[in-house]
Amino acid sequence: MVTAAPRVLFHFAPTDVLRARLEPRLDGLDVRWCAEHDEERFAALLPETDALWHVLRPITAADLARAPRLGLIQKLGSGVNTIDLDRARAAGIAVANMPGANAPAVAEAALTLMLAALRRVVPLDAATRRGAGWPIDTTLPERVGEIGGRTVGLVGHGAIARRLEAPLVALGAAVVWHSPSGSAADPGWRPLDALLAESDIVSLHLPLTASTERLIDARRLALMRPGAVLVNTSRGGVVDEPALVEALRTRLGAAGLDVFAAEPIDPANPLLGLDNVVALPHVAWLTAETMDRCVDIAADNTRRLASGEPLRNLVP
Rank of each mutant, 00 (worst) to 15 (best):
R119C: 01
A67C: 00
N97I: 02
E39I: 11
S179W: 02
A185G: 12
L115N: 00
L111H: 11
P47V: 00
D16G: 12
F12N: 09
R163I: 00
A170T: 06
A51F: 06
L52I: 03
R89T: 03
P24V: 03
T3W: 15
V55C: 04
D30E: 14
Q74I: 00
P6R: 15
L52M: 02
A109G: 08
L168M: 07
V231P: 01
V295E: 05
G148H: 07
L244V: 02
L311T: 04
T290N: 09
L192N: 09
P58K: 10
G308P: 03
A166Y: 06
L164C: 04
V175H: 08
A43S: 11
L52P: 03
R7K: 15
A222T: 06
V259P: 07
T49R: 11
V231I: 14
G308L: 10
L26Q: 13
A94D: 08
T112M: 15
E241P: 02
D217V: 02
R162S: 01
L305G: 04
M114H: 11
T112Q: 13
V155I: 09
D50T: 12
A88S: 04
D296M: 12
L76R: 03
S199C: 05
G77L: 09
S181R: 15
P270E: 04
G145I: 01
D200C: 01
A35G: 13
V277P: 10
E198H: 13
E48T: 14
V278D: 08
D258T: 07
I73H: 03
I160M: 12
D50L: 10
S234H: 06
G188V: 06
A279I: 05
V122W: 07
T287P: 08
P123N: 01
L85M: 00
I136G: 01
L9K: 04
R129V: 00
L18I: 10
W134Y: 12
L272Q: 07
D200H: 15
R41E: 11
G28I: 06
V202Y: 10
I201S: 04
W33L: 10
R235N: 04
L52A: 00
T49P: 07
D275V: 04
D125W: 13
L22Y: 11
F42N: 02
F42E: 07
G131A: 02
L271R: 11
D30L: 07
V55T: 12
T128C: 12
F42W: 15
